[in-house]
Amino acid sequence: MLGLTPFMASIGAEILEMGAGAARARLPYGPKLVGDPDSGVVHGGAVTALLDQMGGAAVMAALDHPVPIVTLDLRIDYMKPATAGVDIMAEARCLKVTHEIAFVRGSAYQTDAADPVAICTATFMLMRGAQALRAPAKG
């Protein structure tokens, strides 16, 4: 699951680390991410997408054997406006995996991990009965 999904690739996200139930990525600032053309600030949806992806990556990194997962719900608190022109980092940690559910916390920040632009809580469902996940192409 190291490969990037087509959407993550399309916005230029890069997975930096993945292992031991945690994942970290960088979203380099770019013009297509802008949600407010006056300020140049990144659209909240891009942060949502990055946190969803890192949450899923953290769950995959917590599993001994990969199974398909789907997001059940995702809550995001936007702690402060992002600064235009600055990359966004996102990290997520899988706190608990049961037979069917995985619980995740994550955050997105720019220069200081202790001063996040957004934090998230997400729950994923493990599709253990589903067909084994085939390895996606590395992106």
Binding site: T5, P6, F7, A46, D52, Q53, A137
Partner: peptide, 24 residues
């Protein structure tokens, strides 16, 4: 569109794309 995909095997839209559409 192809670049909106999150799971290439189903294929399915990326959850973040759906979230972005909702927020927009």
């Amino acid at each position: 569109a192809d670049h909106l995909v999150g799971n290439v095997f189903l294929p399915a839209l990326h959850g973040g794309v759906i979230g972005s559409l909702l927020e927009t």
